[in-house]
Deep mutational scan, measured.
Amino acid sequence: MQGVVKVNSALNMRSGPGSNYGVIGTLRNNDKVEIIKEVDGAYEIRFNGKVGYASKSYITIVN
């Protein structure tokens, strides 16, 4: 499943599905991501070869 990031500035990509996990990357508006699955209000995603988590509130599914 594919998604597009929709933010005003940037969205943190984290090592786990919550803000208490470390930041492993930054997503920008209109970045395209692969959605692997939904976990606790976040999506597990793949972006630029990395797998991490981002809030589903800022990712629009575009299948």
Rank of each mutant, 00 (worst) to 15 (best):
V5G: 05
K32S: 09
G25T: 10
I36C: 07
I59R: 00
A54W: 01
I45P: 00
V39D: 04
L27F: 01
S57T: 12
A10Y: 15
V4N: 03
Q2L: 14
S15L: 08
G52M: 03
I59T: 00
R46N: 10
V7K: 09
I45L: 06
Q2N: 10
M13C: 07
I35K: 00
L27A: 02
A54M: 06
Y43H: 00
I61C: 08
K56P: 07
I35Y: 02
A10N: 11
K50P: 00
G25W: 05
I45H: 00
E38T: 06
G41Y: 08
K37R: 15
M13G: 02
A42E: 14
D31C: 05
N30V: 02
V23W: 05
V7F: 06
V23N: 05
S19T: 12
S55I: 08
N8R: 14
G49A: 04
V4C: 10
F47A: 07
E34N: 06
N12T: 11
E44Q: 13
R14K: 07
V7C: 15
D31E: 07
Y53Q: 02
V51M: 09
V4K: 06
G18H: 07
I59S: 00
M13S: 02
N20F: 09
R46Q: 08
K50V: 13
Y21D: 15
N30R: 08
S15C: 09
N29P: 10
G18V: 02
I24W: 01
M1F: 11
I36R: 04
D31Q: 07
S57G: 11
N48F: 06
I24R: 02
M1H: 10
D31H: 03
D40M: 09
F47K: 03
G41T: 07
G22F: 11
I61A: 06
G25M: 09
I24D: 02
K6D: 04
V7N: 07
Y58E: 10
G16H: 08
Y58K: 08
L11Q: 09
R46W: 11
G3F: 03
G3A: 06
V5H: 01
N48H: 10
K32A: 09
V4P: 01
P17L: 08
N30F: 08
M13H: 02
G3T: 01
G22T: 14
N29H: 09
L27V: 04
N48E: 13
Y43A: 00
Q2M: 15
K32F: 12
L27Y: 00
G18Q: 05
S19R: 12
G3M: 02
R14G: 03
A10E: 14
Y43R: 00
K37T: 10
V4A: 04
E38G: 04
G52C: 04
F47R: 03
I24P: 01
G18W: 02
G49V: 02
L11K: 11
L27I: 05
R14M: 11
D40C: 12
S55M: 08
Y53K: 02
Y43N: 00
V23P: 05
G16A: 07
K6S: 11
I61G: 03
A54Q: 01
V51R: 08
T60G: 06
N30K: 07
N20E: 13
N20T: 08
K56M: 10
D40S: 09
I61H: 04
K37C: 10
K37V: 05
K37D: 10
S9F: 13
G16K: 05
K37I: 05
S19F: 12
V39P: 01
S19Y: 13
E34C: 13
I61S: 04
K50H: 08
S9H: 15
R28Y: 13
R46Y: 12
A10M: 14
Y53P: 01
N30P: 02
N63Y: 10
L27P: 01
K50Q: 11
A10D: 12
L11E: 07
F47V: 09
E34G: 04
N8I: 12
S9L: 11
